[in-house]
Each structure stands twice: as structure tokens, then as C-alpha cells.
């Protein structure tokens, strides 16, 4: 992997920024370079929030993502706003319990009922972001599951065990559809 650009989109409160920070942290702990930014700017207005991560073996200068290689879509509004922007042959992971009728013929789309899983198996939609992170690892193998656990330990002050379970569950769910 030389350089991968991620856009994690959803709505405020879904933990998309935390997801991005843990992803970038795992890459750093894996010896790679990473830059994470969240949009505060006018491009984020209108109920959709997004977080961007670039992971690379080489120095990263321009810190933002214009067209992502990998898009995560966790809400209808975010899907409508960012759903078209993807590199040719990119990867889109859609929380199918939150987004309906997602179409994009440039990319490979993976539909997973992430929020539903979070509710049913973890008792709260709060775990959707970590489940999604697990799914992301399962689909892209951008970093190892162990590095992701290390990043969770660094980044989350509480709930390490349950979050690691959510991570593993998302990973497993993604592997089922590969």
C-alpha cells in the first residue's frame, strides 16, 4: 500500500470522527504515516459530517481528501452528499440499516447492517462506529486487527473489552460477504 484516502461520512453523534482518529492512530502504531482531518468548513453543512484520513508509506503534504479511495457511508444524508465522490474501482461500505438504495457504479459497494447489529447485539447504536471500523479492516486489511485493538486502547478511555468485541464482530460480518 502506498497511499490510501478514506472518507468517513455520517451524521453528528455517530462517532465518525472517532472512527477516523482510531483508524489513523492504528496506522501510526503500524509504522505508517497518517493525517486525519475533520471538516469544520462549509463543505460539512447540512446534517452530514465527515472525517478524512490519509494513510501512506510516504510523507503526506496536502492534508485533505478530494476524491477518496474508500468511502464509508453511515447516514442517508451523508450518502446523498458524498455518495458520488469515489475513485474509479474504489470501495464503499454502506451501513444498510441507515441508508437505502445506495447506487454507485464506479465502486465496489459492501452493504452491512451495522447500526442494526450494534442495537441488537451490543444494546446501543453507540457501537456502530467501532463495528464499522472492524468491517473496514475486514474488507480492506488496511491495518491488522491487532493494531486496531492497540489504537482502541490508546484512544478510548473506557469500554476497551466491549469495543474490541464490536471490532471483531464487524470484522467477522465483513468477512461473511467477501
Amino acid at each position: 500500500m502506498s497511499r490510501k484516502k478514506f472518507r468517513i461520512s455520517g451524521s453528528g453523534g455517530q462517532g465518525v470522527i472517532t472512527l477516523g482518529i482510531i483508524l489513523a492512530e492504528a496506522a501510526i502504531q503500524d509504522g505508517k504515516l497518517a493525517v486525519q482531518s475533520q471538516s469544520y468548513g462549509p463543505e460539512a453543512r447540512g446534517g452530514a459530517s465527515k472525517c478524512e484520513v490519509i494513510i501512506s508509506d510516504e510523507d503526506i503534504f496536502y492534508p485533505k481528501v478530494i476524491i477518496p479511495d474508500i468511502l464509508i457511508s453511515m447516514s442517508q444524508k451523508a450518502a446523498e452528499k458524498y455518495g458520488d465522490e469515489i475513485e474509479e474501482n474504489g470501495i464503499i461500505i454502506v451501513d444498510s440499516s441507515m441508508v437505502e438504495n445506495f447506487v454507485n457504479d464506479k465502486a465496489k459497494i459492501y452493504n452491512l447492517p451495522i447500526t442494526q447489529l450494534a442495537r441488537e447485539e451490543f444494546g446501543s447504536p453507540l457501537y456502530a462506529n467501532i463495528l464499522m471500523l472492524g468491517a473496514l479492516v475486514g474488507i480492506t486489511e488496511v491495518v491488522s486487527l491487532d493494531k486496531m485493538k492497540e489504537a482502541i486502547q490508546i484512544r478510548l478511555s473506557r469500554g476497551y473489552e466491549i469495543n474490541v468485541r464490536a471490532l471483531e464482530r464487524g470484522y467477522e460480518e465483513a468477512k461473511k460477504i467477501l
Binding site: 493525517v35 486525519q36 475533520q38 469544520y40 503526506i60 492534508p63
Partner: peptide, 10 residues
């Protein structure tokens, strides 16, 4: 500037 202040990197 806001970009440098808020971005995270290694």
C-alpha cells in the same frame, strides 16, 4: 491556521 491547528498527524 485552522487546518494546521485541527489536523492530526504523526
Amino acid at each position: 491556521d485552522e487546518v494546521v491547528g485541527h489536523m492530526r498527524e504523526r
